[in-house]
């Protein structure tokens, strides 16, 4: 998509440059408004939109038996509830534990203002809004650790409202489901 955008930008700028270098001369209105303006634009947009909707449809949460974890956002931190060893729920602060290789749904809630759950390396973001419950589907393919953050401005502690996602191997030894250590003083202002 980025490459396409760059190509179209270059194309338009080349047309501008040609128009500047060219002397006066006749041209037809249809060519510019209909062919370029409508024809070219609509074609590109239709392809792009179709692709986007198809991808989006595959990404959204649907009713199946995917793993469910819960996240409650507050000023300024995250509390996660996830199935632990043996299946009972475990609640952790600041770290979410999910198995690799399977899709999972995050149920997002907020205790105060609007926050937004985002793990850039895993996929898109979803807001946590007071009074609403949003469900967001993600999947991590390989074990590892990923940085997560709050993407919606939520006040003084917004920049430091980070969390971590630990992706573990479902067939290996289970992780310890420990909470994150309390954050060091980050200078949240006066």
């Amino acid at each position: 998509m980025l490459i396409g955008a760059a190509l179209i930008t270059a194309l338009v700028l080349v047309l501008v440059a040609l128009a500047l270098r060219r002397g006066a001369g006749g041209t037809s209105e249809r060519r510019w408004t209909i062919h370029w303006g409508l024809g070219f634009t609509m074609t590109v947009l239709a392809l792009l939109l179709g692709f986007g909707l198809w991808t989006g449809e595959r990404m959204i949460s649907r009713a199946d038996d995917a793993l469910r974890v819960e996240a409650e956002a507050r000023q300024w931190g995250w509390r996660f509830t996830q199935p632990g060893p043996g299946g009972e729920s475990v609640t952790t602060e600041g770290i979410l534990y999910v198995p690799a290789g399977a899709p999972f749904d995050i149920v997002l809630r907020s205790a105060d203002v609007i926050h937004s759950f985002w793990v850039p390396q895993l996929g898109g973001k979803m807001d946590a809004i007071p009074g609403h419950e949003n469900i967001h589907r993600l999947q991590a393919d390989a074990p590892g650790r990923h940085e997560g953050l709050c993407a919606e401005f939520c006040g003084l502690g917004h920049a430091a409202m980070r969390f971590e996602v630990v992706v573990y191997d479902p067939d290996g030894p289970p992780p310890d489901f420990a909470s994150a250590p309390p954050p060091a003083a980050t200078g949240e202002g006066s």
Partner: peptide
Amino acid sequence: FSAASVLVAVPTAVQVFAWIGTMWAGRV
């Protein structure tokens, strides 16, 4: 809303190409 947002690029593009066409027709 995604389709509507994409569609709004069309009238904008018509104008951009009309401006380029104007420069094409004249001597800038």
